[in-house]
Design a protein around this nucleic acid. Structure first.
Length: 682
DNA sequence: AAGGGGTCTAACGACGCCCC
DNA sequence: GGGGCGTCGTTAGACCCCTT
């Protein structure tokens, strides 16, 4: 905010109009620049000379006189460009601000916690230097006390030296699983200095970058004032960030808070400037038989086992910190918050999507993980045309999405959308004329079975040939046997009929034993993906082959099912004289009829919302019609656990999503660990 | 020792906002 | 309207670590 100060009263003293015993008025003018100016704030308005930034959770407001007020006339001769006049004098405002502060903090006495550094400088005693040096270790780290004391011991032993050489390394195991552990280690290698080493572990957002950063940080923590050190690390990333930030020390808070692990990096640069350190980072190649690096690597692996993690206390930066986001009061999310927010948002969107009642026919498939979402995403995004956008592509995509969300315009959906155009009652499938014409019926329809069966065996043979010719994985035996045994290419009439003859009050469920039905809805079944995962070792190869195979498979399946259904449905529509023209004009014809009596203009707005409301309730709360809203029994809190998993461990949330039956008890070790040393609460 | 998986960056194109 | 700047999504590539 812009900094305003009271006008210098000496100017007013000479003014005869103020020569009175009454309280002097408070005139505020913009500050022209002072030590409080925050240069890191980049302002658009060049007229503002002095800006201050301060972290507050409450603002005290006081009133000012309006420009038109009589009071302003008294100051007209001062020729001030920009000023405000408070309705209350300065001392009154200061007094009320102080009492608000006391009331807010619920205190009567304030104990100063700051120990003045200038007082200590007189006695340059060793103990005092140690005390100053280890202040960051004591206050900036959150860990068990024995870790702090071991760091302080190292700092004491390093105190008489200035030139250091370190090898550092980080290590992360089982990344992307709930068992991920990250550790780091370093050792001092200058032969004239005690060759001490250190290792530790950390939690939250494990990545090798975080481990390596923490290794550098702990090195800097133990260095004495004015020390020089060379750090040999194998992380190109750390070196880049280090050099980049070193060259541009005045970085805006917005940019700073986007840096991953900014708590660690802020502390690193705070130490460099306050402890006057000279640091050089040197790149070494990992696993290149470098003795120091190998030892650091071993230390990092050892540190990984440690159950006592080291964290940064964000409150160390209370002077400069803006409001930081935390995860459920556990720990600060010290990375680009906008990027990170994508994770919970995506998982929530996914959870809402799979909980949608339209997908209830494949509810079992979703809960049992029968659908491979990774390949499904690739397939939905697959563009068979050679241009990025086209009408053709739009039609392909719209058909894919409608079919996959069970919203393809079948009888029941058309009846919902055009209630006056289609006949009342159940619209039966025009091909089998037994069951209702719905999205889920398409795979179960007995009319298509004779055509589907040869197609399945044709593509079974095609898959066997493809894998036999192109497989790259080490094990290639029993290809034929496995594919022959898979349900993927089997048509089981009994199971299909059982699914069809479901209780009419419950919705039809697609049988899990017939995964090929999922392909009709453009969802890739796990039963098919597993062959590609097993027999193709390269990631891009298996995607390419799978998409190609699926593309042909789905196109032929669609021809004999969806296309055939659509043709016969069109004939049926024609027999009832339902044409495309009528559908297109349906809304157009509807709306004038509603507004037809325009004679009473004040009456129409009352009618319109009422009618709309009735339509809404008709489809969402009437259980007889197919599309009433109902809760699907998928855990609503799943998205929270997926995100938590992503926060505590690593990897994409999708990797945790695929084990949908996730056990909440797996968090208890982390929770007990957190409880054990009283985590920061913000 | 090879390969997969993860993290991270740079580069690119596209787009929106702000200011001149 | 155009330039500057930031944002977003995607892709390629480099690197490291772990697993097999």
């Amino acid at each position: 905010m812009e900094h305003y100060i009271p006008i210098n009263n000496s100017l007013l003293v000479n003014d005869p109009s103020f020569q009175s015993s009454r309280s002097s008025p408070l005139i505020l003018i913009p500050c022209m620049g002072c030590h409080l100016n925050d240069y890191s704030l980049v302002l658009q308005d060049a007229r503002i000379k002095c800006t201050i930034s301060i972290r507050i959770n409450r603002l005290s407001v006081f009133n000012i006189f309006h420009r038109s007020n009589q009071v302003h006339k008294r100051y007209a001769n001062l020729l001030l460009k920009k000023y405000f006049v408070s309705t209350k004098p300065l001392h009154f405002i200061r007094y009320s601000a102080h009492s608000i502060y006391l009331a807010q903090h619920n205190i009567n006495t304030i104990t100063p916690v700051h120990t003045s550094l200038s007082a200590n400088s007189q006695t340059s005693d060793n103990d005092d230097i140690i005390k100053q040096l280890t202040l960051p270790i004591q206050s900036a780290l959150l860990c068990k006390d024995f870790i702090k004391s071991s760091l302080i011991d190292i700092a004491k032993k390093f105190l008489p030296f200035t030139n250091f050489e370190f090898y550092s390394d980080g290590s992360v195991s089982n990344i992307g699983t709930i068992n991920s552990k990250s550790g780091f280690g370093w050792l001092q290698t200058n032969p004239s200095i005690p060759q001490l080493s250190f290792n530790g572990s950390t939690i939250f957002f494990p990545s090798s970058f975080k481990s390596e950063s923490l290794a550098i940080l702990t090195i800097l923590l133990v260095l004495p004032f004015y020390a020089t050190c060379h750090i040999y690390t194998d992380s190109q990333n750390c070196i880049d960030i280090f050099n980049q930030k070193l060259l541009s020390p005045t970085i805006s808070p917005r940019r700073r808070l986007k840096q991953n692990n900014f708590l660690i990096w802020d502390l690193i640069f705070w130490l460099i400037s306050h402890h006057h350190l000279t640091v050089h980072l040197v790149k070494v190649k990992g696993h290149s038989n470098n003795k120091g690096n190998d030892q650091a690597d071993a230390l990092a692996k050892k540190g990984r086992i440690s159950d006592d993690p080291i964290l940064i206390n964000h409150k160390f930066f209370q002077q400069s910190s803006l409001a930081l986001f935390n995860y459920n009061h556990i720990y600060i999310i010290d990375r680009n918050i906008r990027k990170w927010s994508d994770t919970p948002i995506q998982s929530r969107i996914f959870n809402m999507a799979v909980n949608n009642s339209s997908l209830s026919p494949i509810n079992h498939q979703i809960t049992h993980g029968d659908i491979d979402w990774h390949y499904t995403k690739q397939w939905i995004n697959f563009n068979p045309t050679d241009t990025p956008t086209s009408t053709k592509l739009r039609n392909i995509q719209s058909s894919k999405i409608k079919k996959s969300t069970f919203n393809h315009p079948t009888g029941n959906i058309l009846q919902r959308n055009y209630p006056d155009l289609y006949p009342l009652g159940r619209i039966n499938c025009t091909e089998c004329s037994f069951d209702e014409d719905t999205n889920s019926h398409i795979g179960l329809c007995p009319a298509h079975r004779s055509a589907i069966e040869p197609l399945l065996s044709k593509f079974k043979q095609k898959l066997i040939d493809l894998i036999k010719d192109e497989h790259t994985s080490s094990f290639s035996f029993d290809i034929e046997c496995r594919i022959n045994n898979s349900n993927m290419f089997k048509l089981l009439p009994n199971i299909l009929d059982t699914a069809r003859q479901a209780d009419p009050t419950t919705l039809i469920r697609i049988p899990r034993e017939q995964p090929w039905i999922l392909l009709l809805h453009h969802l890739i079944p796990r039963d098919l993906a597993v062959f590609f995962d097993n027999y193709f070792s390269k990631k891009n190869e298996r995607s390419r082959f799978l998409i190609q195979f699926v593309s042909e498979f789905i196109s032929e399946l669609t021809t004999i099912t969806w296309s055939s259904r659509s043709r016969s449905f069109k004939r049926w529509e024609k027999s009832l004289d339902i044409t495309l023209k009528k559908k297109k004009n349906y809304r157009k014809n509807k709306s004038p009829s509603r507004l037809q009596p325009p004679l009473s203009a004040d009456e129409t707005p009352l009618i319109a919302p009422f009618q709309r409301r009735r339509q809404y309730t008709r489809y969402y709360h009437n259980k007889v019609l197919p599309y009433f809203k109902q809760l699907v029994n998928i855990d609503v809190s799943a998205c929270i656990r997926w995100t938590t998993c992503n926060f505590l461990h690593s990897g994409t949330w999708e990797s945790y999503r695929d084990s949908l039956l996730f056990n909440l008890d797996q968090f208890s070790p982390i929770q007990s660990l957190l409880d054990s040393y009283n985590p920061p609460r913000t």
